[in-house]
Simulated scan of single mutants.
Amino acid sequence: MKKHGILNSDIAKVLTDLGHTDKIAIGDAGLPIPEGVKKIDLAISLSDPSFIKILKVVLEDMKVEEAILAEEIKTHNPSQLKAVESALIEEERLVFISHEAFKRELKNVKAVIRTGEATPYSNIILQSGVLF
């Protein structure tokens, strides 16, 4: 049995397979996932698990060079934005795009991890960095 890191085999496999600049997303319960994009559904009930809990666990196991959020989070969910900013480290660039552009960008991710989060714009795209 695995001792450290993410135990969910689907998430662990996606992270292991990422190359430099590949992307994954973590989304709230309502995020539309494009057809053909792998969905890893962790939602067990509304608000459980939370977006920020899953983000923090993924960030412990993934080298991220860029994080993309919807611009709308700034006005519609500033407390979640603050939590995201606290979870990211300094070298991880934070980029804001419109929510419509964000949804279009989901076509380019390797997988979307769906949480039970029930607050607006609690979605992020993480672009993989490289360890060397």
Results as ranks from 00 to 15, higher is better:
69 L>D: 01
6 I>Q: 12
3 K>W: 06
84 V>H: 09
55 L>D: 01
131 L>S: 15
125 I>E: 04
113 I>A: 02
122 S>M: 03
116 G>I: 10
31 L>N: 04
131 L>A: 11
27 G>W: 14
28 D>G: 13
77 N>D: 14
104 R>P: 00
69 L>C: 01
114 R>H: 07
69 L>P: 00
105 E>A: 11
20 H>V: 00
41 D>N: 14
40 I>C: 09
60 E>R: 09
92 E>K: 09
43 A>H: 09
125 I>F: 05
85 E>C: 05
74 K>P: 08
34 P>Y: 01
101 A>G: 04
111 A>D: 06
120 P>C: 05
21 T>Y: 09
9 S>G: 02
71 E>H: 10
41 D>E: 10
80 Q>S: 13
96 F>R: 11
84 V>A: 06
100 E>I: 08
56 K>E: 12
66 E>K: 15
32 P>W: 11
83 A>V: 03
66 E>Y: 02
71 E>D: 14
117 E>H: 08
67 A>M: 02
81 L>E: 14
64 V>G: 02
53 K>H: 13
91 E>F: 12
121 Y>V: 07
96 F>E: 08
77 N>L: 15
33 I>E: 03
23 K>I: 03
28 D>Q: 11
83 A>I: 00
44 I>K: 12
85 E>Y: 00
50 S>D: 06
123 N>C: 11
46 L>D: 14
63 K>S: 14
132 F>W: 10
3 K>T: 13
25 A>I: 05
129 G>K: 04
69 L>R: 03
117 E>F: 13
96 F>C: 06
15 L>C: 10
8 N>C: 10
36 G>C: 06
105 E>F: 07
132 F>D: 13
122 S>C: 15
115 T>S: 10
13 K>M: 09
4 H>N: 11
20 H>E: 11
77 N>W: 13
41 D>H: 07
129 G>R: 03
54 I>Y: 00
65 E>V: 09
2 K>S: 11
9 S>H: 14
128 S>E: 05
39 K>V: 11
30 G>M: 10
51 F>V: 08
115 T>Q: 08
112 V>L: 04
91 E>H: 13
91 E>C: 07
125 I>Q: 05
60 E>V: 04
29 A>V: 03
84 V>Y: 09
9 S>Y: 06
49 P>R: 04
57 V>T: 11
4 H>I: 07
131 L>N: 14
28 D>W: 09
81 L>A: 01
127 Q>H: 01
98 S>H: 07
72 E>D: 12
100 E>R: 10
59 L>R: 00
71 E>T: 15
98 S>F: 10
85 E>Q: 12
52 I>E: 05
39 K>H: 09
85 E>T: 08
43 A>L: 07
115 T>D: 03
127 Q>V: 15
58 V>I: 15
58 V>K: 06
16 T>P: 01
11 I>N: 08
67 A>S: 07
46 L>E: 15
108 N>K: 07
45 S>T: 14
84 V>F: 08
11 I>M: 09
72 E>N: 06
124 I>C: 01
10 D>R: 14
80 Q>R: 06
116 G>E: 04
41 D>A: 11
125 I>R: 00
95 V>R: 14
13 K>W: 12
4 H>M: 08
3 K>V: 15
18 L>T: 14
72 E>C: 04
91 E>Q: 14
25 A>C: 08
80 Q>Y: 02
111 A>M: 05
61 D>T: 05
6 I>H: 15
37 V>E: 04
47 S>H: 11
70 A>G: 13
